[in-house]
Amino acid sequence: MNQVAMPNKLLDVQNLKQYFHPGQENEVRAVDNVSFHIYEGETFGLVGESGCGKSTTGRSIIRLYHPTDGEIYFNGEDISKLKGKKNMQQFRRDIQMIYQDPYASLNPRMKVQDIIAEGIDIHGLAESDADRNQQVNDLLELVGLDKSHATRYPHEFSGGQRQRIGIARALAVQPRFIICDEPISALDVSIQAQVVNLLQELQRKKNLTYLFIAHDLSMVKYISDRIGVMHFGKLVEVGTSEEVYRFGLHPYTESLLSAIPLPDPDYERNRRRVTYQAPKEDGKERSLKEIASGHYIYCSDDEVPFYQKKLEQKKRQ
């Protein structure tokens, strides 16, 4: 129980900025001054609309892009300035990623066993061919696939099966932290549950930490311990999933929450969607401020009491 009392920050992102074409006319601020942290063993959900920078954040953390500015501490070490092949290889083993499109994330010209064993080969994790095959078979079993699937090509599998192959590939290097980049949004609803349950089961078995990127708030609430809401490259609200889901304070979060459909005709008939209107540029400095314990809102200093009052009101209802 000590762990719960003093959770270890596995990932700590501070003032991460990812600009494309910086300083040019077509500068895009995909991720702008984002700070958050993820405790060991938890699932952090990142939600937001399409193009708000969720995936870019994930890709910057895993160093598919070079962050423009900011620090990313993984296990206490700044990985945004990691240099040298050896350090990089260790980092590549610790952090892995599961991709969005199961049809694009597997090389169509490679057999399943070679796809899964790619990381094993790169990092030399197998002592012999027999060991390699054994590891691949174990991984296949772990994600609920059959041994006989190892010699087949990706196009022979369904979307859910492919996604499980992708998960097996990520697990092959025994990572501690996995970035799930919308792993279920391309799947059929009945398959989504399969994959999410598999991810949760793996988290328990292997003590994994997840950054779960998605745009489906109810799915994120189901899987995450804490949620961050992103809008236009900025984090606008961070809190425990219960807190954000029930007492979402930022107008953008409220708008997202109002869009969740429920299979309840009475509720649906009366549901009013809140449209988000971005606040006018008033020149105030805004940043993430802690409103209540562990609940952060993107606001200016003088807006803090307003949000605190709003939270109290919502909790009383």
Binding site: I62, R92, M97, S105, G119, I122
Partner: peptide, 8 residues
């Protein structure tokens, strides 16, 4: 990208 994140 997956190959890159694996360190290829």
């Amino acid at each position: 990208m997956a190959a890159r994140t694996l360190g290829e």
